[in-house]
């Protein structure tokens, strides 16, 4: 069973007239449990828009996106199935006022009641997520005190606490150095296998995409193509990376 399936999908912002036809011509895409797919393409090719469409933030212009073989979900049900994580450098005023534990606890929001109370079970899941990403010692640190590498682990821990089936990541290693990027991709592989998650990760790191992802999806010249990572180079999916 596909965790996530797109059929004849056309995505883009309906309000922008130049995009009415969509950024990319209609295509199909499936994400299976336990696999990590790299999403690649030049800046502005539509990677982030695609991820937002999958997460339900933007309605598709045409075609369908279904999660667990159903295309209609309430926003809360959807939040229990799919998370879109954007790990930019966040310096909001409220980063000063949130501990790591509290941030990871936000992952339980889709399960919380109206007063945002956490049950013992919620607390256990938060603890487990912190442990899973080696954040136990950081639990009481303020978010603003973390390094970028630590921050990316906290974001992942939140998604783990959210217990989603589909994890969408928008350039998670944009601010990470080489060893931390590698560690992140290894972690994604482990999470996908251990938890049966489907992970779609947009990145500019060709090497990690080839080494640590199962498949590579490329958006180029208005076309979306997807191949097994091992065959991607041979099939010309990565030619655009050497364009200039």
């Amino acid at each position: 069973m596909s965790l996530l399936a797109c059929e004849n999908l056309v995505f883009g912002y309906a309000s922008r007239s130049e995009n009415r036809a969509g950024l990319v011509s209609a295509f199909d895409f499936n994400l299976e449990a336990g696999e990590v797919v790299a999403l690649m393409g030049a800046n502005g090719s539509g990677k982030s828009t695609f991820l937002k469409t999958l997460a339900g933030f933007i309605p598709p212009l045409a075609g369908t996106v279904s999660l667990c073989e159903k295309s209609q979900w309430t926003s809360r049900e959807r939040a229990r199935l799919v998370a879109l994580v954007r790990m930019g450098r966040m310096n909001g005023a409220f980063f000063d006022r949130m501990t790591v534990r509290e941030f990871v606890g936000l992952g339980r929001t889709p399960y919380a009641g109206v007063f945002d109370g956490h049950s013992a079970e919620d607390e256990r899941i938060v603890d487990e997520s912190l442990e899973r990403l080696d954040l136990k010692d950081f639990a009481n640190r303020w978010m603003s005190e973390l390094s970028d590498g630590e921050c990316s682990r906290v974001y992942l821990a939140m998604a783990v606490a959210q217990q989603v089936k589909v994890l969408l990541l928008d350039e998670p290693n944009a601010f990470l150095d080489i060893p931390r990027s590698r560690k992140l991709f290894v972690m994604l592989q482990t999470l996908a296998k251990e938890r049966g998650m489907g992970i779609l990760v947009s990145t500019h790191s060709v090497e990690y995409a080839e080494r640590y992802c199962d498949r590579i999806m490329v958006i180029e010249n208005g076309l979306a193509r997807c191949e097994a990572a091992a065959d991607a180079r041979a099939k010309g999916l990565l030619d655009w990376t050497e364009k200039f």
């Binding site: 939040a79 998370a83 909001g92």
Partner: peptide, 12 residues
């Protein structure tokens, strides 16, 4: 606190 898109992503 983490922004509107973030809250939407949590089903709020």
């Amino acid at each position: 606190r983490m922004g509107e898109d973030f809250a939407k992503g949590l089903g709020v």
